[in-house]
Amino acid sequence: MTDDRSPALDRHLLTITQRPPRVFVHGDGSWLVDDSGRRYLDLVQGWAVNSLGHSPALVAEALASQAGRLLNPGPAYYSRPMLDLARRLTELSCFDRVFLASSGAEANEGAVKLARRWGQKMKGGAHEVINFHDGFHGRTLAMMSASGKPGWDRLYAPMPTGFAKARLHDIESVRRALTPATVAVMLEFVQGEAGVNLVDAGFVRELRALCTAHDLLLIADEVQTGIGRCGTAFAYEQYGIEPDLMTLAKGIGGGVPLSALLCKERFNCFEPGDQGGTFCGNPLMAAVGLAVVNEVCRADFLADVRQRGEQLSRGLQAIARDFGCPGERGLGLLRALQLPSDDAAAVVEAASSLAPAGLLLNAPRPNLLRFMPALNISAADLDDALGLLRQALHEVWG
């Protein structure tokens, strides 16, 4: 057994984050087990990646079945899973075309490339994209420039250019950012990394109208909100508008690396060779994605997600009242609890150390906890999680 308290655990890993001193060896649904046998109820799920929980049979079966047939003929050839997943995504959405990739950042890069290619062909070389302060679109250099996370414009300077910033719920700030070189506006309907900030539906409608009036692409980054996370197949369905491009990742693969860029036919303007990638559309990941999408996007499954989202919201509201927290917010099963002080990291640590079972939480801000449980979490597990959260808050605040 590995000594999970050893400071040498990461001696062979490049230092990129501070990981807790435990090694996970097994997962089942909403639960993880480390190599000491300790169990944890997981409300992080790989940062909203494991839409069906840990090691679901559906994903394991899709992997095993496809692995025995065809892994990766290369992106220059068709495969049946690639075609079937692309068809299914267009059936479920307002889009006509699909490009499959491996990560959210890759899908978002693809969206910016497609917008710029369209700008070259249809708008006299327009290439600038308007993004929003506190937005998050990934960790490539271009997507760090596109993101509105404080300090990211200096971390790896010089950074790629062509990204302007506006403020959520301030349509005039979007107008001020417009130039003759503007080609698109890129938006998250819920800013997850910024603390689960919901975008107002009225602002989204204003933004859609502005983009239409100026012949700009509206790009929906649904990397975290798509594939059932918010209680509908895609979050845009709850805003009464249709984007021109949309990106998906995280939950679409149910735990495996898969993402997608979708567009309407009008914007299908890549020339052969403009875009690609060694693993893009490989049948192994596409087969898993198809299985996950078919499961999650059923009407009865999505109805259950909405029910569990309401249960989590009620539970967090009760905790907020009992502990003097400012409140909770979210959409579906992407929610946050705002704390009255900067104790989020202490609560995360206390929750993971509870006996006999720990609770895994995420703190994207010093005074905020984020919850991203499996979409099929049971009502009983969710009640247990809320009880454990109460214990952790008592541990920190007495």
Rank of each mutant, 00 (worst) to 15 (best):
K149Y: 00
F136T: 00
P75H: 12
R69Q: 15
G228C: 11
L114M: 13
G281F: 06
G240R: 14
G255S: 08
R39E: 14
V296T: 07
A299R: 13
L63K: 11
N367Y: 02
E61L: 13
A57Y: 01
S102E: 11
C263L: 13
T179F: 05
L43G: 04
I377Y: 05
T225G: 03
L337R: 04
L89G: 02
A164M: 12
E61Q: 15
S147T: 01
G277N: 07
D170H: 13
G27M: 03
M82E: 13
Q45I: 03
L369G: 04
R298W: 04
L198A: 06
P73Q: 06
A62H: 08
T247P: 01
I227K: 02
D4R: 07
P283K: 12
A213C: 02
V196E: 09
A105T: 10
V25S: 13
A184F: 10
P366D: 02
A181E: 14
D170I: 11
V292P: 00
R176Y: 08
P150F: 01
D300C: 05
R19W: 07
R38Q: 12
P340W: 02
R205N: 10
C230A: 14
V305H: 10
R175G: 09
M1C: 10
R266E: 15
T225H: 03
L85A: 10
F323L: 08
K165P: 00
P81V: 08
P257F: 14
L217N: 07
T90H: 02
L178I: 14
P7K: 04
L339G: 05
R5I: 00
I227Y: 03
D274S: 04
P56Y: 13
A344F: 08
S378T: 14
P180W: 10
E109W: 01
S378M: 05
R116D: 02
T17C: 13
M122R: 15
C211T: 14
F99G: 00
S55D: 14
R167Y: 12
G226V: 09
